[in-house]
Design a protein around this nucleic acid. Structure first.
Lengths: 218, 218
DNA sequence: GTCTGTGAACGAATTCACAGCT
DNA sequence: AGCTGTGAATTCGTTCACAGAC
């Protein structure tokens, strides 16, 4: 099939695409030119058929009997994911988590540039984090009228999260990565992804108990 | 059915259990005594039938015509998830992410106590983070022979992650929360959960492009 | 022979819809 | 009447297995 643009793409496929990308970057660094789905499977732990099926939603990228050209496939996945251009990102919340995210080296390395940091704590405003001066939330509109970011990260306590989300949406943000452990409501044209750190540990706690009960890895 | 201990439990159910817990804590704080599956659905965004089905894997907790007793249900979910006791946790990596996690207030609030922090950078060793003195990785064995933690967090760069995981496993760790963007290999009796911050932004990037292409929220 | 791309088969997870309890 | 618990139906996602390309 040529470019399966119209078939519905499973959500987990998107996350795996990012994993393949990671793997392809490694292969490129190692100087590998060509790779088979089996090799990718070994490295990522994702089933080889799954890999081929995932790619099939976007088109045909491999050569039967040969495999995939690493640099080409990497390029094509990046295009599909919108990673062929840089993304300005706003960060709200300059607590310890926010500050850590401001300096997270993986973000700029994959084209995500933190353009501004906001915090409504007057003690924080004016301080610098990762080379960026913290601004008050009131400046959001002014700042984003020039930065024109569509992505933002919420790293504030849960009480403030919905208000922050509302402000972000009002100022043109379309994608939110939310670290506050609460469901934020947004309009239909805005996407939210939640990362709940405590939830991750709670899930681990469950599996620990399940394994102790001798049920093995589920 | 009485306590469905033998039916297989879907993996997503476990994460949702944690979401319900969050919601029940809110309700308790608001002084609500009884809640229906419909009310939970409204607050969490999770389908009411889904909620009831999720609970059904563990037993029967509600009263037909009435609903669920908030405090009781909360207690029971906590037991099921192993959250009725405190969990000591080791943290490896005292960079900015590690430091942020060391001070993350949500962890102690849900019973996860960071008991020790390790880093193999001699400049870091001896410094204090969130009231804990950073120790060298070599001390892991000695420390955990007294702490006896089964959970650990990896917050080191990807190059070091596999080595850290190996050491953790050798010293009795059974659950790992891994922030390094790489697949770490562990024995069958160890559970790993990955949090890849860059991947989260990459997935958002995909959905942003998809929405611009006018496909709406998928 | 090797490997891709993909329908078909399978398995997992969600949602429906309703019997039965309060 | 209102709500739970759960089989049945449905939707969604993964894996198999093989035709066809190299």
């Amino acid at each position: 099939m040529r470019a399966g643009r119209f078939k519905k793409i499973p959500q987990p496929t998107i996350a795996r695409l990012s994993t393949y990308l990671q793997c392809l970057r490694d292969l490129e660094k190692e100087g590998v030119r060509t790779v088979s789905s089996r090799e990718i499977a070994q490295r990522t732990g994702i089933n080889a058929a799954q890999f081929r099926k995932d790619l099939s939603y976007f088109g045909e990228f491999g050569k039967p009997g040969v495999g995939y050209q690493v640099s080409h496939l990497k390029q094509r996945i990046m295009e599909q994911m919108g990673l062929d251009e840089e993304h300005p990102v706003l960060l709200v919340g300059a607590g310890s988590l926010g500050s850590a995210l401001a300096g997270y080296p993986g973000f700029p390395a994959q084209g995500f540039r933190i353009e501004a940091i906001f915090d409504n704590n007057p003690m924080k405003v004016g301080q610098r984090v990762a080379g960026i001066t913290i601004e008050p939330l009131e400046s959001l509109r002014r700042v984003n009228s020039t930065v024109r970011a569509k992505m933002a990260i919420i790293a504030v306590p849960r009480e403030g999260a919905q208000d922050v989300a509302d402000r972000l949406v009002r100022n043109g943000i379309k994608c939110i990565l939310n670290f506050a452990p609460i469901k934020v409501n947004v309009p239909d044209d805005v996407v939210v992804r939640n990362v709940d750190l405590t939830q991750e540990l709670e899930v681990l706690s469950y599996y620990m108990r399940a394994m102790e009960a001798g049920q093995g890895k589920q």
